[in-house]
């Protein structure tokens, strides 16, 4: 139990620092910066209190915002994917109720993991770029940024999860 709190707190701080110190300055092809910090949302245990999870993910997004001077953009997007996470999982696994206690992302097959991460990442990135540009005229730019950045984020997230989590 304590181990779980400790590992999630460390992941919280580690991912924020990784995002703001390294990933925000990658600038692949001049403008692509992956937003891998949302891995924290994917890995957060399901059995935890839902209100706590919503408040924590809001604070998580807000800490990235404070570092990158972007108002509340990341907080809004991160909170949204935290809210829809369970519904997305239920749709992907085609189960109305599954084992909350024993759920582990590594127990899913690789195509399910991909679908889960890709859906949430694309939704998250679309919200981030819409709020950043804040205008209908920039719709093409928003879509372009969403698609290319999502590809980059999804690849890095899946590699990160496969490398740094234990299979049960």
């Amino acid at each position: 139990m304590n181990n779980l709190i400790l590992s999630n707190s460390l992941r919280f701080i580690g991912l924020v620092l990784l995002q703001v110190l390294i990933l925000n300055h990658i600038n692949l092809f001049g403008y692509l910066n992956p937003m891998v910090y949302i891995v924290w949302i994917f890995l957060f245990p399901l059995k935890k209190n839902r209100s706590l999870f919503l408040i924590l993910s809001f604070l998580f997004g807000l800490s990235v915002d404070i570092f990158s001077d972007s108002g509340g953009i990341n907080a809004a997007a991160t909170l949204f994917i935290a809210f829809i996470r369970i519904s997305v999982l239920k749709t992907i696994l085609r189960k109305s109720d599954f084992d909350y206690l024993l759920f582990n992302i590594r127990s899913l097959s690789i195509d399910k993991i991909f679908l889960y991460i890709a859906t949430l990442t694309i939704i998250h990135h679309f919200i981030v770029f819409s709020l950043e540009y804040f205008s209908f005229n920039a719709f093409i730019t928003i879509l372009k940024n969403t698609i290319f950045t999502s590809i980059f984020t999804i690849i890095l997230s899946i590699l990160g999860i496969l490398l740094f989590t234990k299979k049960k």
């Binding site: 919503l54 997004g61 915002d65 404070i66 001077d69 108002g71 509340g72 953009i73 809004a76």
Partner: peptide, 29 residues
């Protein structure tokens, strides 16, 4: 709870888009 927090986040975002008013969420701390 979700709607409440989301409104707060959007409030910060809109405040950020108008010059000179983003007092709370900035990296000068």
């Amino acid at each position: 709870l979700f709607i409440l927090l989301e409104i707060l986040a959007l409030y910060f975002t809109i405040q950020h888009h108008s010059y000179h008013t983003s007092r709370f969420i900035n990296s000068a701390n």
